[in-house]
Design a protein around this nucleic acid. Sequence first.
RNA 1: GGACAGGUGGCCGAGUGGUUAAAGGCAGCAGACUGUAAAUCUGCCCGCGCAAGCGUACGCUAGUUCGAAUCUAGCCCUGUCCA
Length: 413
Amino acid sequence: MTQNAPPYTSSLLRLLSERGYVHQVTDAHGLDALAAKQIVPGYIGFDATAPSLHVGSLVQIMMLRRLQQAGHKPIVLMGGGTTKVGDPSGKDESRKMLTSADIAANIASIRTVFEKLLTFGDGPTDAVMVDNDTWLSALGYVELLRTVGPHFTINRMMTFDSVKLRLEREQPLTFLEFNYMILQAYDFRELALTAGCRLQMGGSDQWGNIVNGIELTRRMESVEVYGLTTPLLTTADGAKMGKTAAGAVWLNEDALPAWDFWQYWRNVDDRDVGRFLRLFTDLPLDEIARLEALGGSEINAAKVVLANEVTKLVRGAEAAAAAEATAAATFAGGGVGADLPSLACPDGSIALIDALIGLGFAASRGEAKRLIAGGGARVEGHSVTDEAHVIAFQGAEIRVSSGKKKHGVLRPA
RNA sequence: GGACAGGUGGCCGAGUGGUUAAAGGCAGCAGACUGUAAAUCUGCCCGCGCAAGCGUACGCUAGUUCGAAUCUAGCCCUGUCCA
């Protein structure tokens, strides 16, 4: 639930708060006043560990979009430098060291998504993308200690939740992690100095880092800067956003086809529809209120709107339209849509098992058989329980499905 | 460097010589019910095989044994404490 909105005067804070982006602000009224009288350059940091960001980062990206919509300047900070060190917090994953080339390629790939959602350029409110590697790798350790070190007291660092939590739980906190917050703080100070940046935003887990940056900037440069965090975004059933059977919901087209991306939004929990519409689409609030109020099965219309709008923003209007058309044809009409995964079969017949594997519905023959045995495999919408079933076809496309939601097409080669 | 604890399937977590492809939970997939939702109930959930079965798997390596996730030794890694 969003808290009752304070009476903000700036369009920025009004926009952010009424759309549900605001969790905590360091100095809401100070920021409000600043945003009302000048262009506020604000930044959010992103990881460069993979060639694509996923849905979990979309709130942050959208927040930069809102910043720009409200007439301010978004700065996309890519963590090229911090990625080199390797973020130690995700300790479940074996941290493979990325080469500089990998990181550069990742950043280039991620940038394509930002270009859809933000307007880049040289103008006063145009977005820019920077890489903290630029300044971090130029920094010597001793120099870092001398510049930044005096402004951090261990006493204070110990009071941060991220640190406290680890200590209380007797979980290890490495020295590297302890330094990580210093590097993050340094980013803010650097951007404040070189780009006039006055605001850092991020997920609620970044609160401590953001506050550190604010503190450091004030101490070193005597500049007042602000921080704002979004609520931790989970789906209504409590899971972290962005996971599906196939893995993460990636924002880049080459990491996840538009059809699957669209389906992700089409299938969100009823309870999430309004919240997601506010966060992830540009629809006017009264329109969203109307959609959100739909009851029973009518809420499905709102989900289609959600899927269309988000896909349009992230993947383009064409992809959204194609996905919707495919959905209409596939689910309502019982036919096939152009966007479905397809498999070309050379000689006019194929074993059902192979078709399921070829379409990516089963990872192994055993899995395909289990699917068939469980009644989940369908040909032309009819459940087939014979494991040895062979599909023969002449000329026409044949629809093969796994369950009621995952559909694919067989095409004669 | 020393003492202790521990490393089990995507995750958590039982299992201390055969009955263990490994309890249970979570996640996932499918079926029923629905609205391409949620909740609930049911089935499935290492690979190959129509099947009998075969292969692979309990940190790594080498042993003991008819037989090891379970015992022994060495090594690697993680945690706690001491130096």
